[in-house]
């Protein structure tokens, strides 16, 4: 008989810059053969094409953590992931610094990659974070998240 499938979640908000690779190195390895990793960094250019000095990331304390866990559990169950590592910055972020780190381990690559992709899209729309762009020309709230844009379209059969 198969043991009941377990899900290990390590989810946290970071109120100061974090280095994603040491976190990944600590997390990576273990019982599952497939891992998908994503690091999102702050762009130096804003949504109006202006130079940026910083981003300020606001969140809804309590609800943000609750939504991250709910979304992670939902997508892991849907896609078959076994372990998830997530870090998301709140407060001030400088260009080039990591805003989000997401890593997913599963038995197979499809499970790991799909969970990573879907969870990232879900948190961009359903986890209450708001970004304000700060630059020499002033500050403004980002109006909307960009859509997911695969650069090469659907995969052709091999």
């Amino acid at each position: 008989m198969q043991p009941p499938s377990r899900l290990d979640l390590d989810l946290a908000l970071c109120d100061r810059p974090f280095a994603p690779y040491p976190l990944l190195a600590q997390w990576s390895g273990g019982d599952w053969a497939a891992e998908a990793h994503f690091i999102g960094r702050m762009r130096g250019v804003g949504e109006r094409g202006q130079d940026l000095q910083a981003l300020e990331v606001e969140h809804y304390p309590g609800m943000t953590e609750r939504m991250l866990e709910a979304l992670a559990r939902e997508e892991a169950a849907r896609c078959g992931a076994r372990r998830i590592l997530l870090r998301h910055c709140v407060g001030q972020v400088a260009p080039g610094e990591a805003i989000v780190l997401l890593a997913v381990a599963a038995e197979r690559r499809g499970q790991a990659i799909e969970t990573c992709r879907r969870l990232l899209e879900r948190l961009k729309h359903d986890a209450p974070f708001w970004k304000k762009e700060v630059g020499p020309a002033g500050q403004h709230w980002v109006r909307t998240n960009s859509g997911y844009e695969p650069s090469s379209g659907p995969l052709a059969p091999l």
Binding site: G40, V57, H59, W130, T144, N145
Partner: peptide
């Protein structure tokens, strides 16, 4: 998250959220 027609009860915390832009 709730639908707009959610009935409110004493003690509820009600938050109004502009479009989310995280990740």
């Amino acid at each position: 998250f709730v639908a707009a027609d959610q009935l409110l009860r004493a003690g509820d915390e009600v938050a109004f959220l502009p479009p989310i832009t995280g990740g």
